[in-house]
Design a binder for these strands. Structure first.
Lengths: 337, 337
DNA sequence: GGCAGGAATGACAGCGCTGTCAATTTGCGT
DNA sequence: ACGCAAATTGACAGCGCTGTCATTCCTGCC
């Protein structure tokens, strides 16, 4: 029937315990033995039984990915992160479980406790915006469940991965400045999301560096959705002195801005330059294609999970990795009119 | 430390085996005993150890949700299904695992085998477009892993959930006909997806019933994306005799059509009526809001999982459930010009 | 009242692996 | 060549639960 560890042991003429050691990359096995056991495993296509390992070894080989499904950034973004986390888990033969948590509902602590006592994840990956919710982090530490975060708000000794979003935002605004734009507007994302803060900060930084005083009328609140982009843009286009460029905090809102531009008879990029952030598939399909910042979400999910797994295996200690970004200059931005 | 089944047994003055019986809803336990055991479990906040259950009982309490991440319908759609499946699994104390499969890559059979030998899922939920890929289904049957499908192409004795998409498509086209439209175009989704076929069939049915001969120029291929909607619309708007209404096979493409309408100076709904399918969040944020068909994806995921779980528990046998749909008549459709 | 027959309960082994610790082998200095 | 410490290997129990089968407890009926 099923090939068991014992069968491998017999085939390799060693004790089961030695096979176990090889399986878990433990020390104190001679290379010769290790090779022999590996060969036997390979030959017999041995697959350890996760439940047995988990029961005997008191660990689950399970990573849970937590997200907030009340209030999440786009589901595309989450899906990409999920894909990356999954890839890393697969590579290390961990399994992954996804858990929506509803922060607003208040019972999330109970739900977290349930998750932990029911499934005993060895570690947890946190995604925005729940990377910095103090009660959650506290509870995880109480349960002694290690975690890694994707784009946490607070940098520090946290495990995980970030991108220098502020720098990226500054760079994209500088691109607009170089094109001669002076009245540059910004559409902010959902308040309190790290992404919103950093992108706003980058915008301000670039404007200030260019010696342009901030015009409050040019900074409008949005909510990361297409619709909120449309509304923000309408507000901007109704101003006596209209902006010549809009930097929206994500692509969905930028798309909304382009949509609204059509309503007002503004041609992009001739009358108005628009840029976004994220480099979603949508941004390439638009016409003109959207100038934006590429954020490697999938890769970030993967790296966050790898940091966590490194920590779990005790192989050295993980840290907060900073990802590079890249501007995608496309057709939606042009010389100021 | 941890409360074990044995502890509950002692508290309820029964043997461990009896507690196990209660835990698994088995027969041959008096109500009195059952109550007593339940009370003890409750009082001690007992949580069975999944690995121990799985090891001893030879089942995993695991449901895997499979999807194609080369070629999927929108990630929003999948995310909703995932949420629904998760909800059902949670309710029955099963855990859920998501597995992207790349049908195009050809090694998916090996990946499926790996999934099964590594994790031993008790059952599998299939999502479009991999609900009908014969080699996959065959392999699942060979492994004797039961499956349930969301919107399978082939109805039959399959377990799962569908919606009468053809009927819904017909209904929405009839809505356009009632508004006086005669030149009604259709933008098709990705070929071979059941969704594309049914929606096209519904369109044809409605047109034929109204006695309108099919004009091939009015039926354009798309690919379920915003961009493909834009391109399809450009094609339609370049016709000598333009359509007065467009029914796109999903909301993303319908949004693309509205976008392209702006480029051509067509006002929606005054000059052009547009409708979609799916009722994505986007459809409500547009202006005008999109007339579309509400497809209860989350609910469908939940029901598919429930059908599967029913089957797994042997409590009666699951079947193919048909969901109701509802038209969402909004601002993007109006009386023909 | 006694007994068959089914319902309810329990004893016990074992699922496949790893932790602990004991046994054995190896390498090294003298 | 010998002794000793360190490296390597193995024996064995047990993780928390369920399957199997034996045992006990009820019924109803003659």
């Amino acid at each position: 029937m099923r090939v068991r560890l014992e069968d491998v042991a017999r085939a390799a003429s060693v004790s089961p315990k030695t096979v176990s050691r090889v399986l878990n990359d433990e020390a104190n096995v001679t290379d010769a033995t290790r090779q022999r056991v590996r060969a036997a495993m390979e030959a017999m296509d041995y697959r350890p039984h996760p439940s047995a390992r988990s029961l005997a070894g008191n660990r689950s080989f399970l990573v849970a990915m937590l997200y907030d499904n009340n209030d999440n950034p786009s589901s595309t973004y989450l899906a990409e992160i999920q894909d990356g986390v999954l890839e890393a888990c697969d590579a290390h033969r961990y399994s992954m479980m996804v858990r929506p948590l509803r922060m607003r509902d208040g019972d999330f602590i109970r739900r977290l406790d349930t998750l932990i006592s029911d499934h005993h994840p060895d570690g947890v990956v946190l995604t925005p915006p729940i990377t910095d919710y103090a009660p959650l982090l506290k509870r995880l530490r109480e349960h002694k469940v290690p975690y890694a975060s994707v784009s946490p708000l607070r940098r520090g000794k946290t495990l995980g991965v970030t991108m220098d979003e502020q720098h990226a935002a500054r760079a994209i605004v500088e691109h607009l400045l170089e094109l001669g734009h002076r009245r540059i507007a910004h559409v902010i994302g959902i308040a309190n999301h790290g992404a919103s803060r950093w992108r706003l900060a980058g915008y301000r930084e670039a404007m200030a560096a260019a010696g342009l005083p901030e015009d409050p009328a040019l900074v409008v609140q949005g909510a990361f959705t297409f619709g909120s982009g449309v509304e923000a843009a309408r507000q901007l286009f109704s101003l006596a002195e209209r902006p010549t460029a809009v930097f929206a905090a994500n692509d969905d809102m930028a798309t909304g801005v382009m949509w609204a531009a059509g309503e007002y008879g503004l041609k992009v990029p001739h009358d108005l330059s628009v840029c976004g952030f994220d480099d979603t598939p949508l941004s390439r399909q638009l016409w003109p294609a959207l100038t934006t910042v590429q954020q490697p979400s999938r890769e970030m999910g993967k790296i966050a999970a790898e940091q966590l797994l490194t920590e779990l295996r005790g192989h050295g200690t993980g840290r907060l990795v900073q990802m590079p970004f890249s501007l995608q200059i496309r057709g939606s931005t042009a010389i100021a009119p």
